[in-house]
Simulated assay, not measured.
Amino acid sequence: MKKLFVLALSLVLGVSLSYAAKVDTVLIHSTVMNRDIKCVVVLPDSYDKGAQQYPVLYLLHGYSGNYANWVKNAPDFLKCVDQYNIIGICPDGNYNSWYFDSPIDSTVKFETYVSKEVPAYVDSHYRTKKDRKFRAFGGLSMGGHGALYLAILHKDFFGAAVSMSGGVDFTPFAKNWDIARVLGPYEQNKERWQLHTAQHLAGTLNNGDLAISFECGTGDFFLGVNRALHLKLTNLKIDHDYAERPGQHNWDYWNNAINYQMLFLHRFFEKGAGTSKS
């Protein structure tokens, strides 16, 4: 019955069945927003074959996206879940929440939902390794910003963050992507906007607080802000991985990028388990 359900879900989402990872969709209740929100759970093929516990990657979608984007558009993500034995969790961040607890709209509390309520559900329903050394955020575009923003704010609970084409400083794009809806108009709220950027929060880090990796395509409109974040972290002597590769702001780039970022996380998780090799 489970195989039939997974087949049906895969057909609905348009996902190839060339991988063995198990894809499911669950409803996770948000107390702070008083509603149930869909979330994709991707379990490695090995999950049903033993009793081991697994590290978890919370992988965030971009602007105008939803919880199903990664499994629909990035088959390499599913391949890496199997390859590295990592549970993948894709929560819904609303199409334009930017993963904030909005200071002006009480119905938008996606920082709390994604960083607290979703992990609480996941840890209680799946065999996870319940330690920050085995929890990470990742994401693309708006979700790349969210991955860094949330991991920095909650570094006591998450140990790593990876970002692909992240909008790590959105202040140069004040009229784009409905950000004003969750933070207020830029011209009247410049300080508030800056305080909510990953670029600003990076200044609160001490070296070793988080394992950080981020990248951006050389044809991407977010290239400049990613280079600026790389320079800031370098000047602050914060260890991190940074890469630029040919590519645009699209799924061709992100499907390739997830391979590099999940390898980075695999090595981080292995270090946490004391099994990394020199």
Rank of each mutant, 00 (worst) to 15 (best):
Pro119Ala: 10
Leu78Phe: 03
Pro246Asn: 07
Gly65Ala: 01
Leu4Met: 13
Lys277Ala: 11
Asn259Phe: 02
Gly138Glu: 02
Gln199Phe: 12
Asn85Ser: 14
Met1Asn: 11
Val56Asp: 06
Lys237Cys: 06
Phe173His: 14
Asn176Ala: 11
Lys155Trp: 01
Pro91Trp: 08
Tyr260Val: 12
Trp98Met: 12
Val225Met: 14
Trp193Met: 07
His230Phe: 12
Val26Gly: 01
Cys216Ala: 07
Ile258Gln: 02
Ser30His: 11
Glu191Trp: 00
Phe214Asn: 06
Gln83Ser: 10
Leu233Glu: 06
Asn256Thr: 13
Lys2Leu: 14
Asn255Gly: 03
Arg135Leu: 02
Asn226Phe: 04
Tyr149Val: 01
Ala174Glu: 13
Glu270Tyr: 03
Gly247His: 08
His61Pro: 03
Met142Ala: 08
Gly224Leu: 11
Arg132Gly: 05
Pro185Lys: 07
Thr107Glu: 12
Tyr58Trp: 12
Ala8Asn: 11
Cys216Met: 05
Tyr47Ile: 01
Ala21Glu: 08
Ile238Ala: 13
Leu17Thr: 12
Arg245Phe: 10
Gln53Glu: 13
His249Trp: 04
Ile28Glu: 00
Tyr186Ser: 04
Ser124His: 03
Asp45Trp: 05
Val56Ser: 02
Lys3Gly: 04
Lys38Leu: 09
Ser163Phe: 11
His200Asp: 08
Glu191Thr: 11
Gly247Val: 07
Lys2Ile: 10
Ala136Gly: 06
Tyr58Glu: 09
Asn96Thr: 09
Tyr121Leu: 03
Phe5Asn: 05
Ile89Val: 15
Ala174Pro: 00
Gly62Phe: 02
Ala180His: 07
Ile152Met: 15
Val81Asp: 09
Ala273Lys: 14
Ser213Gln: 11
Ala120Tyr: 04
His200Cys: 00
Ala257Ser: 15
Lys190Pro: 03
His230Ser: 13
Ala202Asn: 07
Met33Ala: 10
Gly143Tyr: 02
Asn34Trp: 00
Val168Thr: 08
Phe214Pro: 04
Gly143Met: 04
Val42Phe: 02
Lys130Tyr: 01
Ala21Gln: 09
